[in-house]
Amino acid sequence: MKENTDQRLCAECERPLFGRTDKKFCSDACRNAYNNRVNADATNFVRNVNNALRKNRRILLELNVGDHASVHRDQLLRAGFDFDYHTNTRETKSGEMFYYCYDQGYQVLEDGHVLLLVKPED
């Protein structure tokens, strides 16, 4: 009996594949395992950035008791705020820079204080 050298194998577990000619995996479990393994580094990076953004937003939300408030930069740092992570910025015509974590914003003032505000509706 002649061996079939054209046998396609699962990209994850290398078991023989049956069925469609474009099939790459023998099961959903193998497909998921393969994609999780291949995308692990990117997924972890994105997860860490999203966690930092959510944490920053939560801290701003907790400290901004009204529509705007002023706190010292050290208070944000003690709460775990990371100034390197924000979702967007806005520069005014006068050159003032505002940073946002989704809808919660802040402006770093020269005296070590930070003005907290809610992003205005567009």
Rank of each mutant, 00 (worst) to 15 (best):
N4M: 09
L53C: 05
G80L: 11
Q7I: 15
L9K: 13
L60Y: 05
D22V: 03
H72K: 12
S94N: 09
V114T: 10
C101L: 06
A42F: 03
D82G: 03
R90H: 13
V46Y: 07
H86A: 09
D74E: 15
D22A: 04
A42H: 09
T92L: 14
D103E: 12
I59F: 06
A33W: 04
N44V: 00
E62C: 01
E3C: 04
M1Y: 05
D6E: 15
D103W: 02
N32R: 11
G19I: 10
R58N: 10
Q75Y: 00
A42M: 14
R20T: 04
R90L: 15
P120A: 14
H86N: 07
L116E: 13
K93F: 04
T89L: 15
L116K: 07
V65W: 09
Q104N: 11
A79Y: 01
C30W: 08
N35K: 05
V49N: 01
F81M: 06
M1D: 11
N56E: 08
M1I: 03
Q75N: 08
G112P: 01
S94V: 06
L109M: 14
H113G: 09
G80E: 10
D84R: 07
R8C: 02
F83C: 07
Y106Q: 08
L61D: 15
D82L: 10
K24F: 01
R78K: 09
Y34P: 00
L117V: 04
D6I: 06
F45C: 04
T5A: 14
P16H: 13
Y34I: 05
N35L: 12
Y85T: 02
T21N: 11
H72R: 13
E14G: 00
G66S: 15
G95W: 10
D67F: 02
Q7T: 12
N35D: 07
T89A: 11
N50K: 07
R8Q: 13
T89D: 14
D6F: 07
D103V: 03
A33T: 12
S94R: 09
R54W: 06
L109P: 01
S70Q: 14
H72C: 08
H68P: 01
A40K: 12
G80M: 08
A11C: 02
F45H: 08
H72M: 12
Q104W: 06
Q107I: 05
G105D: 13
N51W: 00
A33K: 10
G66F: 11
R57H: 06
A79W: 01
D28C: 00
M97Q: 13
D111C: 06
S27Q: 07
E14C: 01
I59R: 10
T87V: 05
G80I: 07
Q7K: 13
S27P: 02
E91I: 09
